[in-house]
Simulated scan of single mutants.
Amino acid sequence: MSPTGAFALAFLLLALYCGLDPFKQSAISGFPDFETYQIDPPSWSEVPTARDAQNSLQRAEVKFLNEVQGPESVAFDPQGRGPYTGVADGRVVFWNGESWVDFAYTSANRSNLCDWKPTPFSYMKDEHICGRPLGLRFNKRTGDLYIADAYFGLMKVGPEGGLATSLATEAEGVPLTFTNDLDVDEDGTVYFTDSSTKYQRRNFLQLVFSAENSGRLLKYDPVTKTTTVLMRNIQFPNGVSLSKDRTFFVFAEGAAGRLRRYWLKGEKAGTSDVFAVLPGYPDNIRTNKDGDLWVAMHCRRNPYAYYSGLYPKLRKFWLRLPIPAKYQFLLQIGGRPHAVVAKYSTDGELLKILEDSQGTVVRAVSEVEEVDGKLWLGSVLMPFLAVYDLS
């Protein structure tokens, strides 16, 4: 066989291997209905270029290493006690000043499947049994803790803790599939996100790769006990946080890398607009005592994520290659995990950016909670909390 013929044969065999994926190594193996969607991101010229040259998050203190697995959200009760955090085995735990103690759980069917495991990822296949508390918020008036459980929906537990009570598992006849974050207004109204009606949290990588647009922004009314859809067809909606004056709330558009503002009062009530274009891809948002908003971002934007978002057919072809999801995700985040957090004013102005661009200390961050001059950094992917001193 000539060199040209040998090359052609090798190319054909490689194409067949990639197309058939016989060893089921591709990131979308096992998802026969997987489809990719175009993302309409802000132009590069709109993306903030500010960087933290000091890599300030590398000075953060790692706390409770291997004591809390995947602490996504951080909350302090009305008396200032805590932190409370939801962990990968389905519990909400409380730091009492000396040790972690159980406070609440979301599944009534817990078993030894939910026992301690060495990494946050170890729990994923059983999350639908054990529960997975994500966003946490206290009602400062009643002391009730509201929980966005990825599998069991919107839940609430009283100040004494225990088994959480279900508030909502569907909206307008469509089940909550990936309940993610929430905030609670003074009258008990809850605003929350359902990141997808197709993918559960244990398939969050496929949701990231797909950028499908079944996500919803929701409202729970405590008087009528009904849940309504405020916005739909959102690509990976995530964090939610009310403004200090309660005239609007901000939520994260995960796929596009934006914050969107939803107006609750005034002439614009019931409408939304872009609040800020972010330097990266957001998770949770938290408002501090001054009314500024801290945004946790899993990574900065990078050319691969930007262009693959613009060309969904090319992205789907690439995802069909026998490249495991882990490595596809590394491409998506720019090659290595690295945490970025940013503070925005109530008008959407970027005030501060902190990062660990090498991922040496804070490799990932899901939430930033400011308390007494310190930032508590939670991460759904890491086995610890980190604390950064703003002073």
Rank of each mutant, 00 (worst) to 15 (best):
F249V: 13
Q38K: 13
C130V: 09
R336Y: 15
A325F: 00
T4R: 09
Y151S: 01
M231D: 13
G161T: 00
T228R: 11
P312G: 06
L310M: 12
V174Y: 07
S357E: 10
V47L: 08
V387F: 05
F178V: 01
R258I: 15
N213S: 11
P120Q: 01
A60S: 14
E267A: 10
E46A: 11
D245I: 05
F384N: 11
F209C: 02
L113N: 14
M1N: 15
L375E: 04
T177P: 00
K156Q: 13
F103E: 05
V368D: 03
L217K: 01
L134A: 01
C114R: 03
E369T: 13
V368T: 09
Y307K: 04
K63A: 08
Y123A: 06
Y191E: 00
Y262T: 05
L12D: 05
L163T: 13
E46H: 02
A325L: 05
P383E: 01
L145G: 06
V223Y: 10
I234Y: 01
T226L: 15
N288L: 08
P222L: 05
P312N: 07
S56G: 12
T224L: 14
F152H: 12
F23N: 08
E72W: 01
L65Q: 10
G131I: 02
Y344D: 01
K343Y: 05
L351F: 09
R91M: 14
L354I: 13
D221C: 07
R216T: 09
A339G: 06
L310P: 07
R258V: 09
V74I: 11
N302H: 07
T346W: 08
Q25I: 15
Y307S: 09
T360F: 14
T224V: 12
V47P: 06
F236N: 05
S241L: 07
P32T: 02
L207E: 02
N139R: 10
V240C: 06
N139L: 09
E160Q: 11
S366C: 11
A364W: 12
K343Q: 13
P133D: 03
R320I: 00
S45E: 11
D126Q: 06
D187G: 10
D347K: 14
V223M: 12
D273C: 01
A211E: 02
D149W: 04
F138C: 06
S99H: 08
E349W: 07
G254R: 01
T346L: 15
S195Q: 04
T106P: 04
P159G: 12
A50N: 13
A171E: 06
F209G: 02
L330R: 05
A305K: 04
D292A: 14
M1G: 14
V93A: 02
L278Y: 09
G131D: 02
D89P: 01
Q25L: 15
T287K: 02
D115V: 14
V365T: 11
P3Y: 09
A164M: 14
D102T: 09
R300E: 15
W44E: 15
V208Q: 00
D347V: 03
P78D: 08
T346Y: 09
T179K: 11
G161A: 03
D115A: 09
P42Q: 03
A15R: 07
V87E: 00
A168Y: 07
D194Y: 02
K140C: 12
R286C: 10
L259Y: 00
